[in-house]
């Protein structure tokens, strides 16, 4: 990787100040995506601001009907947290299928969602569960957060502090992994809330999205018996592992499996 200056602030305010003070700065959370990219010399931050020293950003808790995951909480902690497993087991299950055990021990929720990788798992959780991203400046609804390929609504220097998930009536996640990278070729979070059904799909398009045609077909509840319309292949990702047509097919299959898995 290229040379950089390393910063390790102890507070959110210090982190924000460091960002403002430094040129070409980037926040570092678990580093499981950023560091590999830097090793390949595809990212060249002159200043790296490590958020791991800020204790307030880490940890999972339940506040009434809301599960709050601190920004730098590693995936393994989300997967293993009793309060998450008992309230939104699908969220724990999703966290448990990110990367591999070592990546889950370092990678964090904020790092994942700030990157908005089209094949990452967490974006499906946020969008499906209707989560809210809390930052040092505001709250952003998941529906507004993911704006495109590796793009989010985050402003320059804005720091994610936590993600809050309303507890759904039920939810399930199903993932068809890329056999090599184990990222999602297609991942579907199927969620039933009091307000209706949300089907969030990752891996299939440049950015996580809701399968509105499936939501309409399902109506108010996640029913395994519901007939889903064919999912169109237009605009879906294609690569050496899966054509757009195959991904479209998998969106349907994984949705059914997510519904079947929902608890």
């Amino acid at each position: 990787m290229y040379d950089f200056t390393y910063h390790r602030p102890a507070t959110i305010a210090d982190a924000a100040a460091a960002f403002k003070a430094c040129a070409e700065a980037q926040f570092l959370s678990g580093g499981q995506t950023l560091l590999p990219i830097m090793k390949q010399r595809l990212a060249k931050p002159a200043n790296l601001i490590d958020l791991a020293g800020i204790a307030a950003l880490r940890g999972a808790s339940v506040d009434g009907q809301t599960v709050v995951i601190g920004a730098t909480t590693p995936h393994a902690d989300v997967a293993g947290a009793a309060e998450v497993r008992s309230t939104i087991p699908a969220l724990a299950a999703l966290a448990e299928c990110i990367g591999d055990p070592q990546v889950r021990n370092r990678g964090t929720i904020a790092g994942s969602i700030a990157n908005s990788d089209p094949s990452a798992d967490y974006p499906a959780a946020l969008l499906g569960l209707g989560a809210t991203v809390r930052t040092d400046r505001r709250e952003i609804a998941a529906d507004d957060f993911f704006t495109g390929l590796f793009e989010t609504a985050l402003e320059e220097g804005e720091i994610i502090t936590a993600v809050s998930f309303p507890v759904p009536k039920k939810a399930g996640y199903a993932k068809f992994p890329n056999p090599a990278s184990r990222y999602a070729i297609v991942g579907v979070m199927a969620v039933e809330t009091a307000a209706g059904v949300r089907i969030a799909v990752t891996g299939a398009r440049p950015c996580v999205f809701r399968a509105t045609s499936f939501e309409a077909a399902l109506g108010a509840s996640l029913s395994s018996a519901a007939a889903l319309p064919a999912f169109p292949a237009d605009g879906l990702n294609q690569d050496i592992h899966a054509s757009a047509e195959y991904r479209a097919h998998l969106v349907g299959v994984m949705t059914k499996r997510a519904i079947a898995a929902a608890t």
Binding site: N178, P179, A180, S181, Y183, I240, H241
Partner: peptide
């Protein structure tokens, strides 16, 4: 599977992200 892009001659399976061990 080791694959090359036919037009550019680039190796399309140039890491474990695409080459399935």
């Amino acid at each position: 599977n080791c694959t090359y892009d036919g037009d550019s001659g680039q190796l399309t399976t140039g890491s474990y992200m695409d080459y399935t061990l």
